[in-house]
């Protein structure tokens, strides 16, 4: 994969997506997608947290720094959070972060916030399919291409 540093238009193969999933809903939804054998692109790696409340905006920035092309934050629907209101903060933090990314020059589409319940295997699979498509269209993150190149432009 090391040679994958040049920019491509639809580099489906090369897209790198990191998904933060809360244990109780979205991780379970992803489990259900698995149990239901719903097929989706393999370019996504996931990090399990107990609640999306744990997810700091730092993580997302760090993920971009580390060359991820897209980041998903997925948790329980508002009202369903296993910790009642943990995802209230998630909503606030990441709705804002999506917009703030643009201030720094990162497309807001690269961060997706989604509510996926434990019963929504289908929705989870669709989320991955759709997001992979979105990111493929955007192309690999410029931050992955080596900073100098960007800085020089």
């Amino acid at each position: 994969m090391a040679e994958a540093n040049g920019r491509r238009n639809t580099a489906d193969e090369d897209i790198r997506i990191l998904a933060f999933l809360c244990n109780w809903c979205s991780y379970a939804g992803a489990d259900l997608a698995g149990v239901s054998r719903l097929q989706y692109p393999a370019q996504v790696l996931d990090v399990r947290v107990m609640c999306t409340g744990t997810i700091s905006p730092y993580f997302v920035i760090k993920a971009f720094q580390e060359g991820m092309d897209g980041v998903i934050v997925a948790g329980c629907h508002i009202g369903d959070c296993h910790y009642l209101k943990g995802n209230y903060m998630t909503a606030k933090r990441f709705q804002f972060l999506q917009r703030a990314l643009e201030v720094f020059g990162i497309e807001k589409e690269r961060l997706r916030l989604e509510w996926v319940s434990a019963a929504e295997g289908e929705k989870f699979a669709n989320l991955i399919r759709d997001f992979t498509r979105t990111i493929s269209e955007l192309g690999p993150s410029p931050l992955r291409q080596g900073r100098k190149e960007v800085a020089v432009r």
Partner: peptide
Amino acid sequence: IQGFRFDQIISQIVAASKAWN
């Protein structure tokens, strides 16, 4: 938060990136 500390989660992010690289 024990078991999901910053450094632990970030280690996963970095690991993902390293694996890909």
